[in-house]
Design a protein around this nucleic acid. Structure first.
Lengths: 197, 197
DNA sequence: TTTAAAAACGAGCATACGTTTTTATACTTG
DNA sequence: CAAGTATAAAAACGTATGCTCGTTTTTAAA
């Protein structure tokens, strides 16, 4: 046997990425085998290597694409001219809804960092830092404008991010609350948590 | 060779637990091999099975012990007679410091849930729920007493827990801030985030 | 002193892993 | 239509895995 009818490189690659995302999310990167992955895609193990060089590359590809999308989407969500309060409001709304929609990517981007070899680790963590810095900058600006009370901007940012990111561990699309309701409640909590003294 | 001089069951078990904790934290449960574990402890692979039945049992043992300690320590930290505000203050301080000290146990207790087989998963998640309910109860009591503004107590609790738990991902013992400073800042943020009115 | 339990060794089991190689077929381009 | 490239199958590679086994030695109770 050999090449199957209707096979098409880019389409297979997308199927691999989707199946990889699912398997890594469900079982973890180390626990997911390439045989499982191949079965999920519907090809043989060896054929995977027409689409990536190593298992590690598959993971890095997924994480890098996710971080690029995240950073890019954030830029679109924030209007540069706006004040700190409006920017914070936009940030919270964006972060919560994005993390609900892309919950699997977000999850593996935190949990599989340790599966990255050093060079790749540096790259991904660097991108995450860039994202965090956006929020830190907003907080510092709000403090400078006298809008927020922030003892340590980085600590506050980490706290806010952790709180918001947490939604993707418990939020259920058909649960008691809608994404909007959650975003609204968290927005209020964040703003009150930063209210000027 | 056979039984080595001075060998002692409980002592070996403790060494296995400590080494297991370290290896699981560093590499993940699936990625850690029993050969690594045995080497770290200083015995042969087969000898591990004098101390646990399966690799899964090792993980469950670690997680169960951690959750029992966590729940028990919380009970000690909270004075039942106190008001909601005082209880919340005690909860935040306890949670932050405990999570800084036991950061490895906390981390694997979140990240390795998926490595548990169904029966064990149910047990551990049940214990975590019990912990979460403690905070939810405090929030609801505070709301009933008119001390806190809480739209949805569970959502608020999850948010607070995620924010506080986040410390163990970035806190460094010799970093810019002490554990007390972090706890103090987060306490203020939590209280302001729940301020009445 | 005898005996049973505890604890470790060290070899080996079957299986699974990531990866490579070879070969055959399907598309694509000239 | 022919040549070349893309894509997949299939089989195999060496290594690592969790776990079992028979055996041996130490420890502690009878």
């Amino acid at each position: 046997m050999a090449r199957t009818a209707g096979s098409h490189g880019p389409r297979t690659m997308e199927a691999i990425n989707e199946a990889g995302l699912k398997l890594i999310y469900d079982h973890g990167f180390e626990a997911m085998s390439l045989r499982q992955l191949a079965a999920e895609v519907g090809i043989q193990v060896g054929s995977l290597y027409n689409h990536f060089a190593t298992k590690q590359d598959l993971l890095v590809g997924l994480l890098k694409r996710h971080m690029e999308t995240l950073l890019h989407s954030l830029d679109e969500a924030l209007t540069p001219a706006a004040g700190a309060e409006e920017q914070l409001r936009a940030f919270v709304a964006f972060h919560v809804t994005y993390h609900i929609v892309r919950k699997r990517e977000v999850f593996i981007c935190y949990s599989e960092l340790r599966s990255l070899d050093p060079a790749n680790y540096t790259v991904i963590v660097g991108m995450r830092r860039a994202y965090e810095r956006r929020l830190i900058a907003i907080l510092e600006r709000g403090r400078a404008e006298g809008r927020f009370t922030v003892e340590d901007a980085a600590v506050a940012a980490y706290g806010i991010l952790a709180m918001l990111t947490g939604v993707c561990t418990w939020f259920r699309p058909n649960g008691r609350l809608t994404a909007q309701q959650v975003a609204a409640q968290y927005t209020r909590m964040v703003f009150d948590g930063l209210r000027p003294g």
